[in-house]
Simulated assay, not measured.
Amino acid sequence: MSLFSWLRPATPLLAEDLQLRLQRLPLGAELRECSLREQRWVVLDLETTGLNLNKDRVLSIGAVVIEDGAIDFSQQFERTLQCVDMKLAPSMLIHGLGPSAIAAGSDPAEALLEFMEFLGDSPVLAFHAPFDQHMLGRALKDHLGYKLQHPFLDVADIAPLLCPQANIREAGLDEWIDWFKLEVFERHNASADALATAELALILFSRARQQQIHSPLNLQQRISQWKRRQRAPSF
């Protein structure tokens, strides 16, 4: 065994049926010029052991689908990932997932594979998407040896881009919920937060169309332009 083999992370050993399902997963499609309404979106939220991108782990996955311009309640996903060595952490006070619930959760490889099958080739919407994208990507690599390549759009960028009059660029999900006066009866678990994000996204898609942003690709381009302007030095 070479020295470098010790430095490379081990490829997960998967049962044959999981390997076959993994091979059948579609690749994430690039954002298209179709209308925002025509695009199937998967709105994702993760609960994690903490906010450390390199050490913390995914505890639960919640997702809902936006399709044909509405939330499709027949397409929802929720899984708690098993973690037998889970210890009490401050994040438990927020998401409420205790050690017993996590110990009784789904096998991580199975749960993650089921989510990717649910996701298909759809793009992902999330609030503070870079965090969810990184944490999901790391979990997929660790448990399945899979490289996440789906496009993610950040609702935390879309909201201030389309609603500059709100003047709450650094706001969290709660602040945008309050600003739009959305009635959200549950928060701080993955499924509830995914649903709240989806409701916010639908309002923002309506604002986007009013501002002549009609396609997912166009929306992505406008976000990139807006972020460049935000980073530009002011004189």
Rank of each mutant, 00 (worst) to 15 (best):
P233D: 06
P233N: 08
Q211E: 13
L119F: 11
R222E: 13
R228D: 10
Q221P: 01
G172E: 11
P164N: 06
P123W: 04
A129I: 13
L113K: 08
Q76V: 15
R57L: 11
M1D: 09
R229N: 13
N218E: 13
D68N: 13
L173N: 04
L59F: 11
E175G: 14
Q82D: 05
L161T: 07
D107M: 11
R8W: 10
G137Q: 07
L36W: 03
R207W: 09
A15P: 07
A29D: 10
A109S: 12
E186Q: 15
A190I: 15
N54F: 12
Q75F: 04
V124G: 02
R229Q: 15
S224A: 15
D142K: 12
Q220V: 03
A171S: 10
R207A: 04
S191T: 13
Q133P: 00
P99K: 01
V65Y: 05
A101S: 12
A89H: 11
A192Q: 10
A63L: 14
R8S: 10
R37A: 10
C83I: 08
M92Q: 10
A15E: 15
R24K: 15
P216A: 01
G96P: 03
L204I: 00
L46F: 07
C163A: 07
S60T: 13
L125I: 06
A103S: 12
E67Q: 15
A89W: 01
D157E: 06
A198K: 07
D174Q: 07
V65L: 02
L46W: 05
Q75A: 12
R187A: 08
Q149S: 14
T197Q: 09
F131P: 02
P164Y: 08
P130H: 04
Q221W: 06
T49P: 10
A159K: 02
R138T: 05
P160D: 02
Q149V: 10
V184G: 03
F152Y: 08
E30V: 15
P108Y: 09
L93D: 06
I71C: 08
N218Q: 14
A139K: 03
A70V: 00
A159E: 04
H150Y: 05
T197H: 11
A196P: 04
L25E: 07
F4T: 13
A139N: 06
F4Y: 04
V65K: 04
R138I: 06
L195N: 05
A89T: 09
I94P: 09
W179Y: 15
W179S: 00
L44G: 01
V155P: 08
S100R: 15
L140K: 05
P123H: 07
D121Y: 02
L112R: 04
L27T: 13
A126Y: 06
A126M: 05
P12L: 07
A232M: 15
E30L: 12
C83Q: 14
L51M: 08
A171W: 11
P90D: 10
F235M: 10
Q230T: 01
N52W: 08
S122Y: 03
E114D: 14
R229Y: 14
T197C: 15
S91W: 03
E170A: 09
S215I: 02
S91I: 00
L25I: 05
P9E: 06
I168Q: 11
L81S: 02
I177P: 05
D132V: 11
E186F: 07
Q19K: 14
